[in-house]
Every structure is written in structure tokens, then in C-alpha cells.
Design a protein around this nucleic acid. Structure first.
Lengths: 145, 145
DNA sequence: CGCATAAATGAGACTAGGTGTCAACACATG
DNA sequence: CATGTGTTGACACCTAGTCTCATTTATGCG
């Protein structure tokens, strides 16, 4: 089983491989972020690592997003939420109750985009898909969030 | 053919039908917005109707969004863009070049959401889909935006 | 018409989320 | 251990939007 520490180590390694320095603020930010598999906001991270500058935390998260290690998604009300990227896909089913994020890439998204090209004659340049769900386990239990 | 004036009149009528007052700031905001079928930002509207208060313009747009007359979508970089709602659907193919918005509802979105429920065992509560395209006519001409 | 009154307005403070600047600092390498 | 570039932190600034509250105004009623 992958622990939070493993996750943080992995991110650290990826940063290093990318030619980035492993500084104290980055280590702390990664450690904090690895403990929140259900997603986090940058302000939350700032509160958890109060001795590091706000700009630094934002820069670290932006770096991780650009490297594809973290993805930024938006909740129903438009508020941003970040979470660890599982792989290279870009589609999520976010549970409104527990915050868990499921991969939706194999549910026909590509097919949908193909249809759009065919039916409208346009060329798809990018897309954003966010699905808000009540996940299987939350359907049976009480809301927590 | 529907002119911009017709559009503004129509919006005005809908507001009135909804029990809202037809005030001068609202009339101007609607007139300005009706002239931008390719979408607009609220700040743009504020610049076009500078004698009306910024809060009022924001309130007017929010009202129109809540009434389903205008929809808020977000561009690839996350910046918000508003445009006149064509109907009750919620899916758009936004041309990155000319800003035109096409309806994508009949391209299999519902089918996709059904698949998600079946494959993940979750209940879909809401979703957001934005597709960024180069529309058919822009594929043949030079970029303008 | 004239009036009452609830709805709407405008100024401006405030919020969230995020970026830009710049002097000071620190990591890794020669 | 010098050196130089990447990184930091403080803080100003930005966009997008909301809230408050005193003032104004559209509209239905008599």
C-alpha cells in the first residue's frame, strides 16, 4: 500500500528529475499536500505550512500543476480544488460528499469529442469536463462535507 | 432575422415577466450585452456602461444567469466568459478564434453521464463540460482573437 | 395623477484566489 | 569555498465578485 510519505517522496523525486531544487518550503508543501488525497485548496496548504510564504506555496502548486503532478479542478460553485494527479488523463468524477476523485476517461469522453468534430465540423482544441457525483460508498452513508 | 435590438427587447420582456423592474441601468446593460453575441466579460460591460455602478452590472448579469438567460462559461485559462443562452442546455463548444458558441447537447453527453453511473456505481449530481474548438468557418480563415 | 413601498441603485469596503517585483538567500557544482 | 542561478518571502497589486447601507426609483393602487 502506498503511504502518504511514499507519495511525498515520489513527488520530491519527480521535482528533482525535473531539474528543480528540493528546498525546505517545497518539502513541507509536498508533505502537507500528500496527506490530502481528497483534494486541497492552496489556502489550506498555506495554513498548514504557515512559516512558508504564501507566494511560495502558490508557486509550488503551480509548478506541480505544470508538471502534471497535481491537477486543478473546479467545484460546482466554481471554487478551485487541487488534487494529486493519478495519471495523464483530464476527466474527473468528484464526490460532493467525501471529495474522492474517480477517473472517467474510459467512459466515452473521447468518443464524445469525436462526435463533436463530426457533427459541427470544428476542430477540438481542448476541453474541460467535471462531473459531480455521490460516489458509490457515499450513497449508502451520511454526508460529511 | 433577429437583430440585437430584438434580443434586448426579448430579455427585457423576460425580466418583466419574472417580476423584475425595468430600470435604466438594466436597460443599458441588456442593450450592451445583446450586441456581443460572441460573449462578454462583466468588466467589459462595465466599461461600456460606465455611468452605471459596477455592483449593479454584476447584479444584473447574476440575475440573468439565475434566470437562465445568460450562461457563464470558463475559457481554457479559467477566465470566465458570459454569453446569451440559446436554450436550456448546458454544454458548449467555444471557438477560440471567433468566440462563437455551439450547442453540444446532442453529441452524446447524456450517454456519457449514464456510462459514468453504470461504471462507477455513483450518482451524477451535476457536471460541467466545456469544449474549446476551432469552428468550421475559422478553420479556413485567419485568427481574430 | 399622486403616493406608498418594495425593489433597485451606487459608492466603496471587502473577499478569494492568484500574480509580479525585488532584494536577500541558499543549493549544488567547479 | 566561491560563485551563480534558482528560490524565497514580504508585500503590492490584480481580477472577479460580493456585501452593506443610505439613497433613489419603478410600479401598482386609490
Amino acid at each position: 500500500m502506498t503511504t502518504e510519505t511514499d507519495t511525498a517522496e515520489e513527488l520530491l523525486r519527480r521535482l528533482e528529475d525535473g531539474g528543480h531544487r528540493l528546498t525546505a518550503p517545497r518539502r513541507s508543501a509536498l508533505a502537507a499536500l500528500a496527506q490530502r488525497p481528497e483534494g486541497f485548496t492552496v489556502e489550506e496548504l498555506c495554513r498548514e505550512v504557515p512559516w512558508a510564504g504564501r507566494a511560495t506555496i502558490y508557486r509550488t502548486v503551480r509548478l506541480l500543476v505544470r508538471m502534471g503532478l497535481v491537477c486543478k479542478l473546479s467545484m460546482l460553485d466554481g471554487k478551485p480544488l487541487y488534487n494529486l494527479a493519478q495519471a495523464g488523463h483530464h476527466h474527473h468524477a468528484i464526490c460532493l460528499t467525501c471529495g474522492s476523485v474517480a477517473d472517467v476517461s474510459r467512459c466515452g469522453v473521447d468518443h464524445l469529442l469525436e462526435n463533436i468534430q463530426l457533427l459541427t465540423g470544428s476542430q477540438v482544441m481542448g476541453h474541460r469536463l467535471e462531473v459531480y457525483v455521490l460516489c458509490a460508498s457515499c450513497r449508502a452513508t451520511a454526508p460529511q462535507r
